[in-house]
Structure formats: C-alpha cells, structure tokens
Design a protein around this nucleic acid. Structure first.
Lengths: 227, 227
DNA sequence: CCAAAAGTGTTGGTAGTACACCCATGA
DNA sequence: TCATGGGTGTACTACCAACACTTTTGG
C-alpha cells in the first residue's frame, strides 16, 4: 500500500534532574543492528493508526519502563542517509520526568537503560547526538518562558533546587536573592509551610509546590512567566 | 521494505506580505480527491531518498511556481484520522517570500493557486486550518527575536513598512518612534541614502537594507535582537 | 498653505541588577 | 561556636514607554 520506500520512527530525549547529579538523559543500549551495542535514544517504529505521542509513550514504556510527565515534539529529522539501511524519517520528542519516581529497567530492543549526565554522554547511534543537542537547546530556551522546570523537580521542592536547575541549564551563576524574588512575585508557588528535612548543613529550606491552576488563571490575565 | 501501512507528506504555509494588502498565505485548489475542489496548503508526498526541505521546495515549485527565501520546519502532524483514506503523517513547514518577486501559476495537483489574506481564509482541506494557525503563531513569536521579518519585505524597504508588518502580526499599535529607535540602534540596517519614490502623501521615507553579515557579527558579540 | 506621513529628541517610571545582613542548622 | 546554606531587604541603573515638535511632500 506504500508507494514510498521509507520508514517512520519516533525518538525521545528524556531529561531527568537530581539536585546532586544535575541534569541527565535517558539512554538505551541497542540490542539489534545497526549500531548493536551502541547507546541510543529510546524510540522505534510508528505503528499504523497510532498517534505520534502514543508511539513515543509506548516505546518508552517498553524499552525503559518510564512514563514521562511532560512530552513535547522537538523536530523531525529526515536526511536520507541518517540510517545506513534505508531512508528513515524520525519524529523526535523531548520529555521531562521526575527521576526518583521510576526504577529503570531494560526490555524489548534494549540491552540496558541508564541515566547519563548531559556532560558525560557517550557517542550515540545514528544522528542521535544532534537530536540530543537540539533538545537541550530547546529545553534551555523554553524553560525561560514556560513553567516546565517544575516537571523535573519533586512535587514539593525547595527554591534552591529550582535555582540550581536554572543555573545548570543556563550554564551560569544567577543571583540567589534576585531569583527568589522573581519567582515568588509571580505568585504561582504555594508555600507549604514545611521544611526540607535533614538536607545537610545550613538552614533548612522551605518547601513549595507549583500551583498549576493559579498559573493558568494569572496567565489568562496577562501575567508573563519569565526567568 | 515497509512494514508500516502509512504515508509521509510535507506541507507548506507560505507567507507573503504587501504594505497595502497586509499578510497573506499561499493556497492551492485541489485537483484530486480527497477534498477535490477545496483550498489547501501546497504539499505532497515525500520521495524516498529526498530530504524534507527538498520535498517542500519541489512541491512548491511544481504546484505554484514559487521559491521561498526562508523556510523552517513547523511541526509534524500525525493524528491517524487526519486523512480520510489512511494514516498520513505530514511534516509541515512555513516559509516567507517576497510576494512581488513571483507570478503565481497553478500546475500538477493544483487547479488554481492564490494569495489569501490571513483574515479571509476559506475553510481548508484536512487539518490545514490547524496547521495554518500554528504557523501564524510561530511566525508571530519568532519575529520578536529573530530577524526574519526582512524576508517578507523588499530587499530595500522603508522603516514604516517594517513597522506596519510588526503591527499586523502583533495585532496592536506600536509607537512609531520607539520602534524606529529600537530597530536603528541595533545597527543592523544599512542606510541607503535613497528615498521611497512617489509613495503618496507625506514626507518620503528613507530606504534601508538588512545587513545580514553585520547582524551575525554583532550577534556573535552578544547583541540580542528583540522587538 | 494645509494635511498627511516621516524624521528626531526628552522625560519619567519601573523592573532588573548588584549587593549586605540576619537566621537556622550540623558538625 | 563556627561554617554552611537559606531567607529577606535596599539602592542604583538602564531600558522602555509615553509623548511633542519639526520636516518634507502632495493636493
């Protein structure tokens, strides 16, 4: 039924964050050729009648056991030679996940599944290094004007964690006090009147929660999220 | 070969601008089913071994005779039911063109090709209205921090034209004087020391040209384009 | 000579940046 | 009791928004 001799896949760049380890990406070790034994982004063929998002979620579930809590289309890569076998077009997504919610496991096409710090990525299969780079760029840009950073943190998080996340992504120091002020005056965080337990030295930090409903209400009134 | 019972197409939302008519989109009237006789975005099937951009440019050339001077991937639409026949995934692009450079003609799958003002679009085939909406959104957003507006104007243009373009896209009045200041102090426009001939009433406006090389040089030094 | 459109300059408010002090905990 | 990290407040500055006057053309 197909006049075209080409295939369509989906791939996902899944980011996870940890206050200590920083920003990481989820990779799988390929069980099949081509690039057997190489690290790659999780992904696979789109099934007929299946939506793109469904395909991404299915492949992630199958290969790594992870469910992302934010997923957004990144870009479609279609260079004819990006797969050595034939012309394979891939629709890439990037996702955000709370790392500590899941225990990774490897299955189906994956021999292994692991988190890699974004500073220490191995060489990836196909053009996956390019895809990763673009995803990081997109995340870096998007986090400045969309409240998606919260999707990487625990439901209840201390401000310093958010601060560190932004410093990591922007790759530069941000004044702690100005950052606080900016975020808090947006009035989209709920003060939980609780404290981070036993976080090591220093004064314990207060815990906050992102108030999604309030964010959308304020946004509708013209409030602009900008960090 | 192909285990998947689905197809891959490309579609293009091509914008044109005219100081009098405002912002327009290029549409074709479909010669074939489905949606025969309906207006639609130009586009068609990707050929195996062909890059996505090439496919867009080929289809545009074939169906309308136009060559865009800016082309950027927009989004990939893959809902299984977006085409009544079968599952067709389409990679949508949006393009910018200097309208007066081309004489439209219709060919191959198109019975007709015409510019439509964005305020007066007919109902479109498939999910093309959604695609158009997203393209307009993207253009509106992108023009604020990327110097792509110039791609819609003549090579040599007066500032008021650029001003009107921004007003059209943002859908609101922008102070003429502040706009001038902002653009000129970026120092990326070359003053041609020429004037717009016989433009009707009033003082003739000076002509400028976008200095692409200077833009990239300044950008490398940290200059930020923002309108 | 009047109206319309374009060029240029000044001011005040505000938001962002730089910066300092105090507080609560673990060792 | 000291070091470490977290909470909060103030002053300066630079940029943006609001606004007025002059210049050049066509009718």
């Amino acid at each position: 039924m197909f006049q075209q001799n080409l295939s369509l896949t989906v791939d996902a760049v899944v980011f996870g964050y940890d206050a200590k380890d920083g920003l990481s990406v989820l990779l799988i070790k390929r069980l099949l050729a081509p690039f057997k034994g190489h690290w790659a982004l999780p992904g696979g063929f789109l099934l007929a009648g299946e939506s793109l998002e469904k395909a991404v979620e299915r492949e992630l579930e199958e290969e790594t056991g992870i469910k992302v809590n934010y997923l957004e289309q990144l870009y479609t890569f279609g260079k004819p030679d990006r797969d050595p076998r034939k012309h394979v077009v891939t629709v890439a997504y990037y996702g955000l996940v709370r790392r500590n919610l899941f225990e990774l496991y490897a299955a189906t096409d994956a021999e292994d599944a692991q988190w890699f710090n974004i500073k220490e990525l191995p060489p990836l299969a196909f053009d996956h290094n390019d895809i990763f780079k673009m995803a990081l760029e997109r995340l870096r840009g998007k986090i400045a004007y969309q409240p998606i950073g919260f999707e990487l943190l625990d439901e209840e998080f201390p401000l310093p964690d958010l601060h560190r996340l932004y410093e990591t992504l922007y790759g530069k120091k941000i004044d702690r006090r100005n950052f606080s002020k900016k975020i808090l005056q947006l009035d989209i965080l709920e003060d939980l009147n609780k404290f981070q337990p036993h976080a090591g030295r220093g004064r314990p930090s207060k815990l906050y929660k992102f108030n999604r409903a309030k964010y959308f209400a304020l946004k509708a009134e013209g409030m602009v999220f900008e960090v």
